[in-house]
Amino acid sequence: MSNIYMPYLATIEDMFEEAPGVKTLNLVFKDPKVRESFEFKTGQFGLYSVFGYGESTFCIASPETRKGYIQCTFRRVGRVTTALSELSVGDTIGFRGPYGNWFPVEEWKGKNILFIAGGIGLPPVRSVIWTCLDRREDYGDVTMVYGARTVDDLVYKEELRHWEDRDDLTLIKTVDPGGEKEGWDGEVGFVPTVLEEAGPGAENTVCVICGPPVMIKFSLSVLERLGFRDDDVYTTLENKMKCGVGKCGRCNVGDVYICKEGPVYTAAQIKKMYNDF
């Protein structure tokens, strides 16, 4: 395509209310050729547009193993996400991507995986979770720690139940103190605390973490105590983006352009960056 800012057109085939203000869209490309040839790697992102309102950046929340559609999950916060959440099934949106790097799931074959997510940080992690679960035999133990502020704020509630029911993985779900309600069968406590209590082993294990900065910060120290090396802890950085292709000058953390060189980094790589978060 000669115009790098031209989006593909996609139809909203389905939409789900995940939590208050949080929605998931199932998107199918209008052009059959694109539908056929579109591929991405887990961790990559795109720019989703509502024409007349603009573009917004989110990761692709569906796994690379499922073809024919993509999903995004977003919280309604600004102009574009408000417009997106007011659309209906059958409406057209724009999509540019996939952009950026990805989680090296191929390299993780034979390893255990620990997933840690907080709140709206689950969608990017969920893409990796399903990518690995769809190739379950390639990986060792799979453990997930997921928390949200309240029970209602947990996203992918149905999938959480599904994951709980599976016997080939361990899911620890938690809500912040005060966020529990009647019938809650999970933990009550902040993610880092719950993580430390669970104390998953670090041997032959990689960790994927995404969530609010404060959760990441405290979880990283827990992971360090548990014996995880910074090279084995992966996260995806979010920054404001407009172009997504390294031109517009917005997403850089020091000399690193998140859109092109990221968004996936190890904790070791992040520690080497300029303090520009």
Partner: peptide
């Protein structure tokens, strides 16, 4: 200096996406 913004102008019925200096 070449930083820019990308904005939609017009309405959802008709308009254009523009690259503007930022």
């Amino acid at each position: 200096c070449r930083c820019f913004d990308m904005v939609d102008e017009g309405t959802y019925i008709e308009g254009e996406r523009r690259k503007n200096w930022d």
